[in-house]
Design a protein around this nucleic acid. Sequence first.
DNA 1: GTCTATATCGAGATAGAC
DNA 2: GTCTATCTCGATATAGAC
Lengths: 186, 186
Amino acid sequence: MYSMADTVERLIESTRELLWERGYVGTSPKAIQERAGAGQGSMYHHFTGKPGLAKAAIDRTATQLRAAAEAQLSGPGTPLDRITAYLRRERDVLRGCPIGRLTLDPDVMADETLRAPVTETFTWLRTRLTEVLAEADLPSDIDPAKTAATVVAVLQGGYVLARAAGDPTPFTDAVDGVLALLGSTE
Amino acid sequence: MYSMADTVERLIESTRELLWERGYVGTSPKAIQERAGAGQGSMYHHFTGKPGLAKAAIDRTATQLRAAAEAQLSGPGTPLDRITAYLRRERDVLRGCPIGRLTLDPDVMADETLRAPVTETFTWLRTRLTEVLAEADLPSDIDPAKTAATVVAVLQGGYVLARAAGDPTPFTDAVDGVLALLGSTE
DNA sequence: GTCTATATCGAGATAGAC
DNA sequence: GTCTATCTCGATATAGAC
């Protein structure tokens, strides 16, 4: 048997997984319940419905993504080492980015409360990378903010290429490519 | 009144638009009919159903995307000029990429006949960019194939960033950033 | 070729018993 | 808190008339 807290927990985790795999439109309350091993009544007791569940799931995913990125970006080494560590961190490439994929979900983007964490995640990420790149010894004609956008875009686009190919290689190539352009010495 | 050919044409175009805006899961036959100004019976007379319609729409979109890219990549100027023209071509950035978005649609990727044009489009694009980059005078430590993956990823990821921000600027920044890294002199 | 009627199923949720 | 019953719609077609 599960405790109530566990039920809530499993509902959120199931929603997170399904949003990641199938997006908001493609995720039904029923599918969430089945994956969580929770009943209809239970789900609607703890949450207001699909939007409420999605809000809890997206907030948590955004928080985790940010923490994971910060772990690499504030780690040891030169600025370029940290960017490299971030880009080369182990990832389940073919699953794609759980936040990035939401930008394509019209129902998510139309709901201000669901959209906000998505917007904020990428704003924060670009800002944070800009800071790190500003510390790096880049040529004067390389703008840190624009380069930060490039780096985040390579990640997000790399996922798209990998999924299109059904193979992580294009993702790895895209990352290697941008690191070489940044003058990474390895 | 419309001719039959026009009806087929409008059904395909409506499907293309809806797949672009809402993806496969988010697009209903009814919505397609309404946008096309066609009736239920008419739609099912000309197409086998939603998958058949999607096949026609995706094939056409893939063909057009390829032609549009080739127009820039085989245009005038140095290799870097052509890459620049391709990346800076006028785009409706906030709409995103009509092919790239399909990689996140599980029902599309699960159907081999719908998936194939998506896979092929990106394979072709990376190959074509590799050829152009191989002609460019890049430093010997810059690999054309990997750089090609980087360039395509910047586009695809740039769309994601722009949609997240609700503003085309991050897309433009990402493009400017990678062009600067490539040593574009403008 | 196109229309309307009809059918099945799942999405998304509410109500009230336990 | 959780369960089952019930409800309303829309998704996705098929059938047969026109």
